[in-house]
Simulated scan of single mutants.
Amino acid sequence: MPKSRPTFLWSLFSLQILCTVFFMIDFGHDVVGTPGAPRWAGDFMEGAVAVALLLGTVFVGYELRLVRLREQRMRQQIDVASGAFADMLHTQFDAWGLTEAEREVALLGIKGYSIAEIASLRNTKEGTIKAQNAAVYRKAGVSGRLQLLAHFVEDLMGGPLIDRPAAAEANPSA
């Protein structure tokens, strides 16, 4: 949305508030019967305000339609990205030669479950989960869960976030 569009929407909102106030005051004058300007001037003003409200309503409806379409597109993009991430996981799991149990443990670990939670979900002992995690990390060539997760995040981002050799030169104590 261009910068001028939110300004326009706020201006439209303000105009609609003014129109509402006008109609409320006009209604009060009609009820009380206060004499004022000639009737044709009031009718002209009411007509102008009604046209402004009509145009505002049409524009708001159009904007709501655009927002709904944008939301649908974003949901589709998220679905595609989720499917692509799942495909990437399974492709990498195949390349590493993970067993079905190791795949499940790795996936639950990537999702953020603790060892105890994974053991509970899989109806097994924590020691078994630790051994399966160790096998996953060994096959993946990483030292732990964070490096495993970082491997997939780097793939999503299109490569490493930091050039490792350059980072090591910049910080030799690391």
Rank of each mutant, 00 (worst) to 15 (best):
G36F: 06
G112S: 04
D87S: 14
L54M: 08
I78R: 05
F93C: 08
T34M: 09
Q16I: 08
L89E: 05
D94W: 00
L98R: 01
Q77E: 14
V105F: 01
Q132M: 14
A150Y: 06
L66H: 06
F22M: 03
S82W: 00
L149P: 00
V153R: 10
V58M: 09
S11F: 12
W96I: 10
P172S: 03
V153S: 06
V31M: 12
A135M: 07
A81M: 08
I115M: 05
G47R: 10
L55N: 05
P2C: 06
E169L: 15
D94R: 00
F23A: 07
F152N: 06
G33I: 01
I115L: 09
D79T: 13
T34I: 07
L12D: 06
G109D: 02
L54S: 11
S82I: 08
S173K: 14
V136D: 04
Q72Y: 02
Q72S: 04
L64P: 02
V58E: 01
S4D: 15
L55Y: 12
G109Q: 05
S4R: 14
T128L: 03
V142M: 03
Q77W: 00
D94V: 00
V21N: 01
L69D: 11
Q72L: 13
A106S: 06
P165V: 13
A52E: 07
E117G: 06
A166K: 15
R164F: 09
L12M: 15
L69S: 03
G144V: 02
R39Q: 09
S120W: 06
G83Y: 00
L66D: 04
E102D: 04
A174F: 12
S11C: 11
A81E: 08
E102I: 03
R164M: 03
W40L: 07
S114Y: 05
A52P: 01
V60M: 15
L54E: 03
A52H: 01
K139E: 00
H29M: 13
N133E: 15
D155E: 11
P2S: 14
D26N: 14
E154Y: 07
G141H: 05
L148G: 02
M45K: 09
A131E: 13
L121P: 00
Q72T: 14
P2Y: 13
A119I: 09
F8D: 07
N171T: 11
G127I: 00
V105D: 05
I129C: 06
W40C: 02
F27A: 14
L55M: 14
F22R: 07
L156D: 03
A174Q: 02
T91Q: 12
L69T: 13
A48Y: 02
E154C: 04
